[in-house]
Design a protein around this nucleic acid. Structure first.
Lengths: 153, 153
DNA sequence: TAAGATTAGTTATGCAGATAACTATTATCC
DNA sequence: GGATAATAGTTATCTGCATAACTAATCTTA
């Protein structure tokens, strides 16, 4: 692959990251959320209470990041942490009522953001897009090989 | 669009951002670069000396970010700043010899990263990918409307 | 030309996310 | 059982990028 193509791709990914995150931030701000926190709420909404190590794995970020996210969401009353009965090292994270309500709002925003994002693309392309992006992610994922987890999808 | 699809898309973009950036960071680290800095070097390599305001526009990040990037790259000797003759507010940024050499190395890395990223995708999809991603970026770009610049592409 | 608006750049501060180094607990294996 | 390894979580510190507030220079215009 020549440099022109490579740069077009890498730069496109970089810019999409910046702009999609910025747009998400703008949409989440009225809810009092910063980008990244919504992922934790959605994950808890999807699968129920989890310990932080599982959240770290599911969100694709490192344990110290989860520590900070949970601390802030706990401080704002959207999640609760309680000790895991079977393992005194672990703490279980779950949504509070306010967190559940917030997650429901985020889900609506999330739909609006996704629709806005794919505006103007043919439905067929839209349908393929998550799979394509997951392939790209899996190709550059150095994380998947660390804990015996197989690459994305 | 229902939440499942929307979340699949938003999450895929978020994860691709994290992993592509992390992979870039791993590749750039041996050159002594942090992710983001390579974009500035490549831009200067592409178009020659620019003032910071132009770099801010081209890189898609805000002026204070450019201030910090240029300061660090100047400290490491890869770029040089000189006053603009026609505008005493502006400073012109250009590559040093070491910066030019570094940019050439980055260009090679960039090709390797792009090829790694699209592994396993059909060539036709790869060819369409930058355009698709730029469309997505343009759709969520709140920046383009600020300085009379038309969206993406 | 003098007043106001715009633009280039910086500083201060806040956030997300990373790694490194550490504690406390649990698992493994001789 | 007891030493060792692995795991859950935290703290400290680093990065990039953001906004807000500011200075200095240039442009506009009345």
């Amino acid at each position: 692959m020549d440099f022109e193509q490579a740069d077009a791709l890498n730069q496109a990914i970089r810019l999409l990251s910046l702009r999609h995150r910025a747009r998400a931030a703008a949409l989440l701000a009225p809810l009092g959320l910063h980008p990244g926190q919504e992922a934790l709420l959605l994950e808890l909404d999807r699968t129920g209470p989890r310990i932080q190590a599982e959240l770290s794995e599911a969100l694709g970020c490192e344990p110290p990041s989860v520590t900070l996210m949970t601390r802030k969401l706990e401080a704002s009353g959207h999640i609760r942490r309680k000790p895991a009965p079977s393992d005194r090292r672990a703490s279980i994270v779950e949504l509070t009522d306010s967190g559940q309500a917030l997650a429901d709002q985020v889900k609506q925003l999330w739909c609006a953001l996704a629709e806005e994002t794919v505006t103007g693309l043919p439905a067929e392309t839209v349908a393929e897009l998550p799979g394509i992006l997951n392939t790209l992610t899996g190709n550059v994922d150095t994380r998947a090989h660390r804990h015996g987890r197989r690459p994305g999808r």
